[in-house]
Design a protein around this nucleic acid. Structure first.
Lengths: 338, 338
DNA sequence: TTGAAAGCGCTAACAT
DNA sequence: ATGTTAGCGCTTTCAA
């Protein structure tokens, strides 16, 4: 079957049709399974495709169907360091999931409020749908996407009430982790340090923390909670104040804060877990590698990615999908709280 | 200019032509700058495009030119944790650089030896060129790309002697860092721990280490060098042996080994830098956050990405490019070696 | 300097 | 069940 036609350049639909003495249409139908084709013809086509090593020209297909078979993924470019492993794992499972359904994944970088890459992709119509890995707080990405009628799914909460979202159970997770800490410590000694409260994750975590106290029937004391804390001087002040007022167990809002906290405690001559216990939320492996390893809540980056991707593809293909999907978490209890 | 034609759906070449009473061809030429068009016409077209908010349908353009305006980036999916920040920074600057030249960046995941995603992209012809972020040792990616005549550039050394590569000066960097260590320590007390010698980076670093000794006129002792070391028991044995034979300054092959080493030293009751000095190669910010911060060699992920991307685009556009580009490094001297 | 028309490789409506 | 044909929106000969 390696005839003169197929030599040199890639076979195309026409070549298959000619080799089999049938029409392009039939071949197309046999491949897509859309129209009716006799089983025999279908098999002949499939065999021929294999022999001639045919693979469709996706650009032509795209053009004809007015579909790109690409999805865009908006990747935040700030805060890269701590969150990179999370985002990358997520990205990889998105691309894997898309590949399985014959879609490709194009990267859309987003620095701060710079949406130019997103605009470019929308203007050039090079994606059939978009995943927002961390929506901006002003909802500007969603607005842009809605205007262009581009299907999208966000990872994490969105300001757009109609957005399809996939998120981790931040509040429940934090509640459960806090409950564990309350069981093993004097409730009045359990403290919390959180970053920017503009971010929904932090508000959810706060909520979970408070709820765990409520559930346990002990009052939560304002003096044990520091919110809006940035790493550095602010954090040091917070940690010192907490220690001064008898904090014996500290929950940190993210692994960045946690690493700094650990250093601050070391500088103060405090030993973990002997003098103070520490727990955190998990983005990376670095909490594992500390000595002692740090108790943490781990969210499932891979699952988050594949779930989001398949929802978006379903949305693109007009299937019915849930507006909100909440995924679970794992609690990793380690020596820092024992 | 917001006439009946442009309402609802995106303007296309035809609309511009009709609005201006000229032909599609002329409009196309005015945009691309390829044929000759009078300056006046050209300006009219450009103005009209702005007013009508026209942006070309890239799929149609692709189809017609038989070009995708995509480049593929092969992203390793193993060893993700430590290298993620590096790869992600690199990926972001690739995508930024490509966007500036109207190309998009598609992700090609590569787990271990699984090249299926790469094959998919090649078969469907959805990229005009490929960047390999870390070539496999068997050169299989390069083979595949060469067979399909797909232009590519590798980050790091390739087994293919014809490959266009961009790399960091690992050997020189290691040599310089070692030289610094030799100046501030008894040469006989400077040790090295390296990972898998199958990886070219590690061979280059080894080379640089030895060269620094040669340059300083002191012999390098085999007992101070441990190669092919995996984290865990092997590393512990190596570190213990080094300490036993009087090592006072230890250079670690990557930040993973370094973090483990730091923990092992802590468990042995050794204090850094009082009892032993430690330096490493840099992939992440975690070495900065240690107390004490660790002296390290930092490679320029962003620059590596943008350089590679613009080389690949030049290659695609048939410009002449150097076969090998070596980028520099930064030495970050911190308290761990003071 | 400009225009008319062919063609890129598929899909799908319509005809048989 | 299969074939014919028109189009998708650009670029690019070729002609004027």
């Amino acid at each position: 079957m390696d005839n003169i036609v197929t030599q040199g350049k890639a076979a195309q639909l026409d070549d298959i049709a000619r080799a089999l003495g049938i029409s392009k249409t039939t071949v197309s139908r046999a491949i897509s399974g859309k129209g009716r084709v006799s089983a025999a013809t279908r098999q002949r086509v499939l065999d021929c495709i294999k022999e001639m090593n045919y693979s469709p020209n996706m650009i032509a297909k795209s053009f004809s169907e007015n579909k790109t078979y690409n999805i865009g993924v908006v990747l935040p470019m700030d805060n890269i360091e701590t969150e990179a492993p999370f985002f990358q794992t997520c990205l990889m499972s998105i691309s894997k999931c898309c590949a399985l359904r014959s879609y490709d994944t194009v990267v859309i970088g987003a620095e701060k409020n710079d949406l130019s890459q997103l605009r470019r992709v929308l203007d050039s119509r090079k994606a059939d749908g978009v995943i927002i890995m961390r929506p901006l707080q002003d909802g500007s990405m969603e607005t842009l996407l809605s205007e262009k009628k581009m299907p999208y799914v966000t990872i994490g909460q969105s300001t757009d009430p109609d957005a399809v979202i996939v998120d981790s159970a931040h509040s429940d997770g934090c509640c459960e982790l806090t409950a564990y800490l309350l069981m093993n410590n004097k409730p009045a000694s359990v403290g919390l340090v959180l970053g920017d409260m503009g971010q929904t994750v932090n508000r959810s975590r706060y909520e979970g923390f408070v709820k765990a106290f409520e559930n346990s029937g002990t009052p939560v004391s304002a003096k044990n909670i520091f919110i809006g804390v940035k790493s550095g001087i602010q954090l040091r002040a917070a940690v010192e104040e907490l220690i001064r007022t008898g904090c014996g167990c500290l929950l940190c809002g993210d692994d960045m804060l946690c690493m700094d906290t650990v250093n601050i405690l070391a500088a103060m001559g405090k030993s973990i877990p002997r003098d103070i216990r520490v727990a955190s939320f998990y983005n990376s492996m670095y909490l594992d590698m500390y000595s002692p390893p740090i108790t943490a809540l781990k969210f499932k980056a891979g699952e988050l990615g594949s779930t989001t991707a398949s929802l978006l593809l379903d949305l693109i293909e007009n299937k019915d999908i849930p507006r909100e999907t909440i995924l679970g978490f794992e609690m990793l209890i380690r020596r820092s709280t024992m």
